[in-house]
């Protein structure tokens, strides 16, 4: 720990205000989501605790019927927005993290194989990646989502909706990982330590896993942060379009969609607070990711 505090990495971090602020914002949001059940005044997923009379209460004002006060107001069904956002964050972050993991495992594996083994396998993987890149990733996600919904038996659709969401976002974001890993692999495989590994008779699989993989991972970390922000936005977009998580368990995107319905009737807060949360989350991840990229690889600046 002390070595970390004295490292150049930490020095650079503590001397870049943008990095510090974005990291702090991100950590606050994460912690708020993790400890939502302690922080949130109500449980928005518990129908028993809802009171329809509380609907459309503006922020920091007493409800005209019940006299209750809500920090960020309530939505049409009387759910406390602040609590709903905290619980919604959990879903958004969970979907984001799992989708990135999926994209990362898939992209790194395919990139490593394409780069190290080369030949027709390389051509096949990378041409497929090229084709997928010509479609906007949200379109790919919607396509996969639609197909999955059609294939799954109707009684499973509801329970599997989050899993389907994760798979569709994950499959739509693997290409940047594969491309970067392939590029670094092409560089690493020509280095002499790989020749040394061949000299002692290691198999291709051993060389790929033990020698190449550890040396191509640092750019992956940077892409993972940026993809994480993209995945959260993708989830919000899908939910906004009504193909994401069910309304009974709203994520940030679902909340924004609900809020949008009431924007022109004057209930601005239902849209504003979830939207601001999404903005803060995506922006902090992106800014931190940018800093990380600049620090880990000065050549990319």
């Amino acid at each position: 720990m002390r070595r970390f505090l004295q490292s150049d990495f930490f020095y650079d971090f503590s001397n870049t205000p943008v990095a510090v602020v974005s990291f702090v914002v991100f950590m606050v949001i994460i912690l708020a989501a993790v400890f939502a059940n302690f922080i949130a005044p109500n449980n928005p997923f518990d129908p028993a605790s809802l009171n329809l009379m509380n609907g459309f209460t503006p922020p920091m004002q007493a409800n005209e019927f019940t006299g209750e006060v809500f920090l960020m107001g309530t939505d049409d069904q009387g759910r406390d927005l602040f609590s709903t956002i905290l619980y919604g964050l959990r879903i958004s972050l969970f979907v984001g993290i799992m989708a990135v993991m999926l994209a990362m495992v898939m992209g790194v594996t395919l990139g490593l194989i394409a780069g190290y083994l080369g030949g027709w396998l390389d051509t096949l993987i990378m041409r497929f990646a090229d084709i997928q890149m010509t479609f906007p990733s949200i379109l790919v996600a919607m396509l996969i989502y639609g197909v999955a919904k059609g294939v799954l038996p109707p009684d499973l659709r509801y329970e599997m909706s989050i899993a389907v969401l994760i798979v569709s976002i994950g499959l739509s974001e693997w290409v940047p990982f594969a491309r970067t890993v392939r590029g670094s692999t092409l560089v690493e495989r020509e280095k002499e330590y790989i020749t040394a590994a061949k000299m002692i008779g290691l198999s291709k699989r051993q060389i790929m896993l033990l020698h190449v993989l550890p040396n191509v991972l640092s750019p992956v970390l940077v892409i993972a942060t940026i993809t994480f922000a993209l995945a959260i936005i993708a989830e919000a977009t899908l939910s906004f379009l009504g193909v994401g998580v069910p309304t009974t368990k709203p994520s940030l995107g679902t909340l924004i969609r609900i809020g949008q319905d009431f924007l022109f009737s004057g209930e601005w807060w239902i849209l504003l607070f979830p939207a601001l949360t999404l903005l803060a989350l995506a922006l902090s991840i992106n800014l931190f990711g940018d800093w990380l990229r600049d620090t880990l690889n000065p050549k990319l600046k």
Binding site: E192, Y193, M199, I200
Partner: peptide, 28 residues
């Protein structure tokens, strides 16, 4: 393979930067 080994030109590219020296020598 065991009878013939190699010493390379580049002192930088010939050692895996993520491995500890002990592990590098232990591998063969």
């Amino acid at each position: 393979r065991q009878r013939v080994q190699m010493v390379f030109q580049s002192p930088y590219a010939s050692l895996n930067p993520r491995w500890k020296v002990g592990d590098i020598i232990l591998e063969p």
